[in-house]
Structure formats: C-alpha cells, structure tokens
Simulated assay, not measured.
Amino acid sequence: MMRRVLVVGAAGFIGQHLVRALAAAGASVVAQVHQRQAAFGHGVQIVTADTAVETLLQDCAAVAWLASGTTPAGSASDPRLELSRNLGPLLRLLQALQAQPDCHLLYVSSGGTLYGDVDHSASESLAMHPRSYYAAGKAAAEHFIAAYTQQYSGAATVLRPSNVYGPGQTLHGGFGVIPAAMSCLRDGKPMPLWGDGESLRDYLYIDDFIAACMAALRQPPQHSMRVFNVCSEQATSLVQLLALIEQVTRHTLQRDQRPARAVDLHRVLLDGTRIRQELCWAPRTSLHDGLQRTWQWLNATPP
C-alpha cells in the first residue's frame, strides 16, 4: 500500500470517503480542508487550506486532488471563477511537484462534462468538447498536468468519473440530480426539471469510485500521464432515474418542468474498457441498491 498521501479537498463528498479508505488501508493521510470541518478519526492529520503546498508534499508518495471550487451552474456566467478557484491552486501544486516528480498525482476530472453530446460510449481517446466553463476548466487542467509530466517526468493519473452519488453527498449549488430529487422528496417540495427528461447519463456509486481511486494509487504510472473513464456503463434517462427513485423511496416526486438549458447535454455515455483492463476494476453496486443506501443515509441525517 502507498505510504504518506496528501488529499486536497478532503472535506468534500468524495474526499471524506477517500480519506477513510486510505486510513483503513494503512496509509498515513494528510487531509487538507477548506472551510468545512471534517472528522476522520485517528491516524489522519488535518491541515487547513492556507498551509503551503510545498510543506504538505514533504515525504508524500502521492497526492489526490479532489478540490473544486465551482459547479457547472456556478461558473456559467463568470469564467474567471475557474481560474481563481480551480486552475490557480492546481498550477501551484504542479509547480511544487516539479521538485519531486516521483510523487504520484491523482487528479479527479470529469467524464460527465468533457466529451459533449455523443451518440456512442466515449473512450478516453475521443477529443474533448467542453460546453460549459466548468468543463473547459477541467480540460485545461488535464492539459497542464500532461505538460507537467512531459517536462518533468512526473507521474499522474487522471480519472474521469461519470455522475458519482451516494451517502454523504449533499445538495451543493444545485449540483447532483440524485441529492436534489431526494431532498425534494424528503422536504415535500417540487423539483425543477430542465428539458424533456430523456437525457441519458451514467451513474456511479461512491464506493465503486473510491475503489477505482485506490486501484489507481496502488499502481502509479512511470513518468507519464494516464487517463481513465470511471463509469457503470449503464445508460439511464432522467425519467428512468426519477421513476427508480420513486420506487426506492415509495414517494411521488412533484415536478416543476422547465425548458432545456444551453449547458445541458443530452447524452453523456462513457466507455470503461481501459480501466477494466489496466487496473482490473469494475463497478459492483447496482443503481437500485445504491439509491436505496443513499435514501437510508439521507433519512438518518438531520436536515
């Protein structure tokens, strides 16, 4: 197992799950948090966002970058947010990594926004077609990471997950249809829906995505950047998803139908062949079971 690992964005939905998985696997974890508080138990060192990244990287075998200061809707009218909140901090990390290229960088990108509308499952070789500033920021980050690995012989793994969901995911800036729908059901409020509901997405349970992160960290690349889609490879329309949520929760969701938005994609489908072959990873949780566990967690959590 990897030794000392720095997790940037540790207080977020994915970050909290990854920190706990790393600690359970015996890694020494440095968890960097921004504003939000998080409790991880023994063996995890918690540091704040104002701590110099050069200091945090000392003796680290890997760094997992999960931090994101925007959502697709949040930066839709202000592209500068992608620079100040996401790209700027990442570039400072890359500059620090130049002095220790053997430190493995794990960067969580986005499979759900990078490829644009596709009529088939997108493989990693498909050109990126970002439609939102958020997606453009992810694409730019990947290009900077690739340039870093080529100039300084660094090691980096980029994961492009589909729509990750599960216990611990809160409604943040309207980001995440599953927590949005379940929150509306719990609170008895109508859910705003844009478009005709026929848009297709791939949904991935959090435990399966964390397993992919752990597999990537266990097998770092040799002085290069590799890219993996991480997905269930199951296309689900919004109409189908909401029907399944109603079945799991035994509640009827009130719908507030609205016109489609320019940033919304109709088909986001990913090909997960590469990660299955190279990291021997595959999802294990069905959408029904994942939704059921998520609903149980939400009902046990105070509003």
Rank of each mutant, 00 (worst) to 15 (best):
G116V: 01
A127S: 09
A136Y: 08
G111P: 08
H120M: 09
S109L: 14
G116A: 00
C103E: 06
P101N: 06
L94N: 03
Q100L: 03
A96T: 11
L126A: 04
M128I: 08
A127G: 09
S132Y: 12
Q95Y: 13
A96G: 08
L105S: 01
S132L: 10
A122Y: 03
L126S: 04
D119K: 01
K138R: 09
Y107W: 12
D102M: 03
G116R: 01
L106C: 15
K138T: 13
A139K: 05
M128L: 10
A96D: 12
Y115T: 04
E124M: 03
L114F: 08
A136I: 11
L114P: 03
A136Q: 14
C103Q: 07
A96E: 09
G116I: 00
Q98V: 04
S109R: 07
L114M: 07
L106D: 10
A127V: 06
S125P: 03
L93M: 05
P130K: 07
L126I: 05
A136R: 12
S132W: 07
A140S: 07
L97T: 03
G112W: 12
Q100V: 02
A96C: 14
S123R: 12
S121N: 15
M128S: 15
S109N: 04
S123H: 13
Y134K: 02
Y115L: 12
S109I: 08
S110K: 06
S121A: 11
H104N: 15
A139C: 15
V118D: 11
D117C: 01
L97F: 04
D117L: 01
V118Q: 09
A99F: 10
H129V: 13
P101S: 15
K138V: 07
A140G: 07
H129A: 11
Y133N: 15
L93R: 05
A99D: 13
A136G: 14
A122C: 02
H120W: 09
D117A: 01
L94A: 01
K138A: 05
P101G: 09
G111I: 06
S125F: 01
D102I: 04
D119S: 00
A96L: 06
M128A: 14
D119L: 00
A140W: 11
